[in-house]
Amino acid sequence: MSAQDHDRVADDRAGPGWAAVVMAVAAKDLRIEFRTRARTLTMAGFVVMVGLLFFFSVDRALVRPQDIASGLTWITLILAGLIGVGRTFEIEKADGAMTGLLLTPAPRDAIYLGKVLANFILVYAIVLLTTAVFGLFFQLDYSNHPGALLLLLAAGTLGFVALATLFGALTAETTLGESLLPILLFPLLVPMVIYGAAASSRLLLGRPLSEVEGQVRMLAAFALLAVSVGAVLFGQIVEE
């Protein structure tokens, strides 16, 4: 390489911009997912099948579907999300790609947030699918404040994805692997299920927005806490 080229590259070496790293990592993950479609199809198939099984498991003569649909939706979200995010680090383990990524000057928390962003987009799409599927099977009426419903689902999903990505990175480096993920994750999801299911349930039953405000705020706090904690501790997990 000539001296001129070296200088040009050296100027380039101002280091990667933080936001640029987040975007690049998210774009890379989404591009890979788009090419392989492995996780998306698995999650989507899971959701539809579970919806169908729930449909068969509920005797509509005895139980009103609206009463339980909310809880079922959140549980399905968790299980489907677990499948999807659990594999998030498989891509990185193949060919030691994560190691290569860590050898670059890209900041660890930016890498983490990039992955969270990509996983969020993926899982939220599945959440929307779940909502649609359950709406179909249980004839649910979403007309009461659909915006609020989407928002609270987004907050819950973000918190879930943030924690699952953090612990996914951890379990990828253990001998037990993915099977350890539920044990680590589920205790922390208690607030998400409690507030999330209560809020979506109320909205489904036609309750006013004021009754769910508190829960939406708690979900937002949950998401914020999860993302912050993940960003700080991710570096500790991926270090060798």
């Binding site: 480096e173 253990t174 409690i194 708690m218 501790l233 500790q236 270090e239």
Partner: peptide, 22 residues
């Protein structure tokens, strides 16, 4: 050891929220 420490810290940080929700 490092992983366990992470689990411990995250757990502790979430306990207040879990407490409130329960």
């Amino acid at each position: 050891k490092r992983f366990a420490a992470v689990v411990g810290i995250v757990g502790a940080l979430f306990i207040p929220l879990i407490h409130m929700s329960v």
